[in-house]
């Protein structure tokens, strides 16, 4: 019984993460402008990675390997939003951003 509950939790978390990643990939390829694509790709790094790692954590139980997984999530949560932030600043500095902000009537 316990094993089935654990399997259920693991599967649900992994599926959530994979769904988030799929949506993000679709978004990266569907959107046209850098900031929109960045918005889609940022979700993959944070939500998708968190859910997948938590799923693996649930499958493995509490051990050194699963703690390393959590460390990887922590590092990704530090680095991924900051890389998005830097890309946004670079776009703001170099692209002609008003062309995209213009409201067409």
């Amino acid at each position: 019984m316990m094993e089935w509950i654990r399997f259920g939790i693991c599967a649900a978390l992994m599926l959530t993460g994979l769904a988030a990643m799929c949506i993000a990939v679709i978004g990266v390829f569907r959107f046209r402008f850098v900031l929109n694509r960045m918005h889609a790709a940022g979700m993959m790094d944070t939500l998708g990675m968190l859910a997948c790692s938590l799923g693996l954590f649930a499958a493995k139980g509490f051990s050194l390997e699963s703690l390393k997984l959590l460390l990887a999530v922590a590092v990704l949560w530090c680095t991924s939003p900051i890389s998005s932030h830097l890309i946004a600043r670079l776009v703001l500095a170099s692209e002609n951003i008003k062309e995209y902000l213009e409201v067409r009537r």
Partner: peptide, 17 residues
């Protein structure tokens, strides 16, 4: 010179990481 410089968020992260 067109690149963003002295980004405080990045600096704080780099100090830690």
């Amino acid at each position: 010179r067109y690149e963003p410089q002295d980004d405080m968020i990045l600096q704080n992260l780099a100090d830690v990481l």
